[in-house]
Design a protein around this nucleic acid. Structure first.
Lengths: 266, 266
DNA sequence: ATATTCTGTAACTCAGTTAATCACAGCATC
DNA sequence: GATGCTGTGATTAACTGAGTTACAGAATAT
């Protein structure tokens, strides 16, 4: 009825979580009503009354509502935390089932194997990029440089892995792109810590680009990872990264020079 | 190509988790290949080669694959655990965002409030039913009876809540529908524990029904919950429950008599 | 009792999405 | 330069979901 933005947001999230529009709208309406008839749900959710029944039936099988089979039927919402928990639960169980089945097959002959000596890979998503960087940190043998926006260092796992690299005897150099790196000096004793001037690395060329550098990492002078926040169409920004490997890779060479030239020599 | 059932299962799960068919098939193929070109992925996944590119692009934004932008393009899979973790991650963040938004609205006038003194509600799903039973156990004030298949008692939380009900001074009576209840006697000292003969409660009427009673619970002689496993079309069986409340509710009355008549008097 | 409103089911239409195919412009290799 | 392959875009067909209508049974009012 009235264009409530919070309702719309909830509906959208529910759709992203696998519900149809009617199902999502009915669920949100019922959550606000606690208990209601199909007619009332239709009024609040703006879903055609005759389709409320189908939608609720699906919601019931997902453990999101309760149904009283009287005439007229009554529908009752389930406490929010509980309902969301149910959704998460089924999703997680799917996740583990998926892990199992995927492990059960793996490996088919790669058939064509074009040897690549200069690799440049793209990947996206905060978590995927973090994971890749963890792996690269773990694989580093000699030296490792990391210049990033300060919030990157709020990731405890990242810091921990940097610490273990230090313990392995890897030369670790870290720097921030914005704030002061004082906190790091404590947590990463043994590492070179510096505060980078913002200027040299920011994409100063085109400002309306809406792309902001987030991390620049260099591993053993032969592997590099550069990530940036790119504004997406809808709401938040997404992190995308380019990750290059190979000594004679042009990208690696250029960025290596950029990075090393501004890092105080160890 | 060959109709591998494990592959199909993985594809189906991935689709349930929000991927399109092509995306799911490409992901599974790439997981088996580790690294491949579009052509090879097309061969293995049976997805039209020209559509592999779109599919992979989506997969990349979800943090499920890496892309090397060369010619020909190379696609590389991300370790299974990592990829599944990425999926779960985005889902969980959606879940918490959903919780927040939903809490931010709640409550609209129920408008019509048909007072019901004999309620019978239906709900389904293992977790939803468990949660409801937890709540009912917590709300029980005087007595509580629970007859269920033995695996139900493997739920630690259920047992814990039964224990706390006991501590509150609630008369607790538990029984199993199948196995021996010896383990329960230890964990629930203070409760009446008995092993029910299967006969009296099984739906002996029509055997081809494929419905099996799972739990029968009675709370304060006025609320009852009966759940059963109903075979679904596809794979596993789903648990559905009827949950009745109200002293003069017919269902409650009948089942209460059935249940109490077979429970040794406390 | 009869009329009238309401409830729940089922069918249908229309629109948007997705699967599947085709045409074509770079690259590559021969 | 010819041929085969790669990646993009457009196009069609099949399907799914949103929105509507018809209708039989139930409940309520008169």
């Amino acid at each position: 009825m009235e264009g409530n933005s919070d309702v719309d947001e909830a509906v959208e999230i529910l759709q992203q979580m696998g519900l149809k529009e009617y199902e999502a709208r009915c669920f949100v309406a019922l959550t606000r009503l606690s208990e209601a008839t199909a007619k009332r749900i239709s009024e609040v959710s703006d879903v055609p009354r005759t389709r409320v029944y189908d939608a609720i039936r699906v919601l019931e099988t997902k453990g999101l509502v309760e149904v009283q089979h009287t005439n007229p039927k009554l529908f009752r919402s389930i406490p929010v935390e509980e309902a969301v928990g149910n959704l998460l639960d089924t999703f997680e169980s799917r996740g583990s089932r998926l892990s199992d089945t995927l492990h059960g097959l793996e490996s088919v002959s790669p058939d064509d194997s074009p040897e690549v000596c200069h690799e440049v890979w793209a990947l996206s998503g905060d978590r995927a990029i973090s994971n890749r960087s963890y792996q690269l940190i773990d694989d580093a043998e000699e030296e490792l440089a990391l210049v990033a926006r300060s919030e990157v260092f709020e990731d405890g796992e990242l810091v921990a892995r940097l610490g273990s690299a230090l313990d392995r005897g890897v030369d670790v150099t870290v720097g921030t792109l914005d704030g002061s790196p004082d906190g790091l000096r404590e947590t990463l004793s043994g590492a070179d810590v510096f505060s980078s001037g913002v200027g040299w690395i920011a994409s100063s060329s085109d400002a309306e680009d809406s792309t902001e550098i987030r991390r620049v990492m260099l591993f053993d002078r032969e592997t590099i990872l550069v990530s940036s926040d790119h504004a997406t169409d809808s709401d938040a920004s997404e992190e995308t990264a380019v990750f290059g490997h190979g000594f004679n890779n042009g990208l690696v060479a250029v960025l290596r020079r950029m990075l090393l030239s501004r890092i105080p020599d160890g």
